[in-house]
């Protein structure tokens, strides 16, 4: 067994949320620059210019990339040979969120009761935490501050198995078309296929933390990603929905076996400000 202090998790989470809200990953920056080169629409190019200019400001001025600093989504992969000591792990994560959003001048966007009082919690907690137990003696923490505009465009379809590959493509393309200008395109399209309703959506969300445009290691999934991306970019929505060729940077597909009756498909969209960071303790 290896012991890890809960306080170390708090510190890591706080640093990751600050970094994620101030600096885009090199992969996202490269995707933006590539989109700017390829985009044919003048209005789309203007939007991409503004987005790129925006990325040069935050770190030096203590202003985050976007005022929507998101719901604090956290993926924890905990090695089974790890013993977390001196504190509760969920509290450790939430303390990290609280610290980052306070010290980092990040917007607190969580409200306590979703359908009635909607009073702000004041510190952007609670985080949405997805924990998996994995082999090993380390803890991998990935944070994803997830903006509301794109998250609100998520779709779940419990398709009939007869719908097959084409049914999946049609469902995902339609979800992006219906989302239209709302999720701040160019987007990353996270797709989860199989499992159960909640498993499909969790995969769709998890797919968003993959390096942008890196194909799935599964050949069939990679081919599906390519086919969906082609169709999505033929929609013409373009950057910020002003019309154009680049509606999505990439489509990321994750799959899981499904019940004999079922073909669940979940779509979770990531705005162009694809902010996520990870570390291993």
């Amino acid at each position: 067994m290896r012991s890890i202090n809960a306080a170390d998790i708090t510190e890591a989470v706080a640093n990751l949320f600050k970094q994620a809200n101030y600096n885009l990953g090199a992969d996202v920056l490269a995707a933006l620059k590539k989109a700017r080169k390829t985009e044919e629409s003048p209005a789309g190019r203007d939007a991409l210019d503004a987005i790129l200019e925006n990325t040069r400001i935050p770190a030096k001025e203590n202003i985050p990339l976007c005022q929507d600093c998101g719901t604090a989504v956290v993926f924890l992969e905990v090695g089974q040979a790890v013993l977390i000591v001196k504190g509760d792990v969920s509290k450790a994560v939430n303390d990290g969120v609280q610290q980052a959003y306070k010290e980092g001048y990040l917007r607190k966007s969580m409200v306590i009761h979703p359908f009635s009082t909607r009073t702000n919690t004041g510190d952007n907690t609670p985080a949405v935490i997805h924990t998996t137990i994995v082999p090993g003696n380390k803890v991998k923490i990935t944070v994803l501050p997830k903006g509301g505009g794109a998250e609100n465009m998520a779709k779940l379809g419990m398709l009939l198995p007869v719908a097959g590959r084409q049914g999946v493509i049609d469902f995902v393309v339609k979800a992006v078309e219906q989302a239209w200008s709302n999720p701040c395109p160019p987007v990353i399209v996270g797709v989860g296929i199989g499992g159960t309703a909640e498993k499909a959506m969790e995969m769709a969300k998890h797919a968003l933390i993959r390096k942008v445009g890196q194909p799935s290691p599964d050949k069939e999934n990679a081919a599906l990603e390519k086919d969906i991306l082609h169709k999505v970019n033929n929609l013409g929505i373009g950057p910020m929905g002003y019309g154009g060729r680049i509606t999505a940077f990439a489509v990321h597909v994750e799959t899981f076996p499904a019940h004999i009756t079922a073909l669940p498909v979940a779509v979770n969209l990531q705005c162009h400000s694809a902010r996520h960071r990870e570390t291993v303790i």
Partner: peptide
């Protein structure tokens, strides 16, 4: 419309 995600700018 203003450009979403360009909040710092």
């Amino acid at each position: 419309a203003a450009v979403g995600g360009a909040g710092a700018l």
